[in-house]
Amino acid sequence: MSGTSTPKSAGQSLPPPPAAPVTLRINGQDHHLELAPWTSLLDALREYAGLTGTKKGCDHGQCGACTVLVDGKRINSCLTLAVLQEGADITTIEGLGQEGNLHPLQQAFIDHDAFQCGYCTPGQICSAQGLINEGKAHTEDEIRELMSGNICRCGAYVGILNAVKEVVDKKSIALRS
């Protein structure tokens, strides 16, 4: 791996990037990366670990497209630095399910027509898995409230709610990683 994330500062020339070795445990596998300290976890996943299932939407913690699980808890990967997550257990959409072995939430999203363009879907599904891990949401109102950190600009909310509700009702999902 080489290179660094590109800071957005306008008109500012940067000193050589002080990339350093960082080991991230992603979906049960150690990834040995060379990262500058300002590399977000999101950029580390997509640009360095090659896991592009996690999406970059707003890059400011407002849309939820970048949601991943860290030690089983859902977070916005755009608002944490990769170096701060060394030692943590990171789960992305690739770790939840694969082609031919879909996670129940993935199957439910298909069954309930819970996406259109699909860009927010990995974040929605990781967030829903986090919601299930938390165990606080049972009713439709509670699911709506605790899924409010994930925006869907296609407006597939009715399908998303139904998909998440179906899996919540089964109450038997274990985090696969």
Binding site: G61, L79, G130, S148
Partner: peptide, 9 residues
């Protein structure tokens, strides 16, 4: 306040 993801961080 905020969202579940932000409150987890």
């Amino acid at each position: 306040g905020a969202s579940p993801q932000l409150r987890n961080m």
